[in-house]
């Protein structure tokens, strides 16, 4: 399993109904591309986060297919509509089968 993988998200804590909010997400991950070689000349096997999904109260905001060309510590910034109060769920899928999740609640008035 990849080491020190830790998600971070930035979501406003409140918004008005129907408002569009800006979201930033980052996960610490080496994103080994499969293109590099080690000191002995052997290819270092690919090991990346290959998919990222953000949902709000169960509905999809964004679903990203990620290739090795996304940088170390994958970063995404996007906007979401928030029709009511609820919870964002952010999920990252690792090549090694690990799934990382983070959540954030927002109060809509």
């Amino acid at each position: 399993m990849a080491e020190n993988v830790k998600p971070r998200v930035k979501v406003p804590s409140s918004a008005s109904a129907g408002e569009t909010v800006q979201i930033k997400t980052l996960i610490s991950h080496q994103m080994e591309s499969g293109q590099r070689r080690d000191a002995d000349g052997n290819v270092i096997p690919r090991s990346i986060i290959n998919r990222f999904v953000a949902t709000f109260n169960g509905e999809t905001v964004i679903d990203v297919v990620i290739e090795p060309a996304v940088s170390t510590n994958p970063y995404f910034e996007f906007e979401a509509k928030v029709p009511e109060s609820g919870e964002f769920v952010f999920t990252w899928y690792d090549d090694d089968g690990s799934v990382y999740e983070d959540t954030a609640s927002i109060e809509v008035s």
């Binding site: 709000f56 509905e59 905001v61 679903d63 060309a69 970063y75 996007f78 979401a80 509509k81």
Partner: peptide, 27 residues
């Protein structure tokens, strides 16, 4: 110009606030 040309595919769901996204990539 990358060894594999694919970078990312952004699919926007019903709660996307816009069809817009930012990320950081390797070239």
């Amino acid at each position: 110009g990358n060894p594999n040309p694919g970078v990312a595919t952004f699919r926007f769901g019903p709660l996307a606030g816009s069809q817009e996204a930012s990320t950081r990539i390797r070239l």
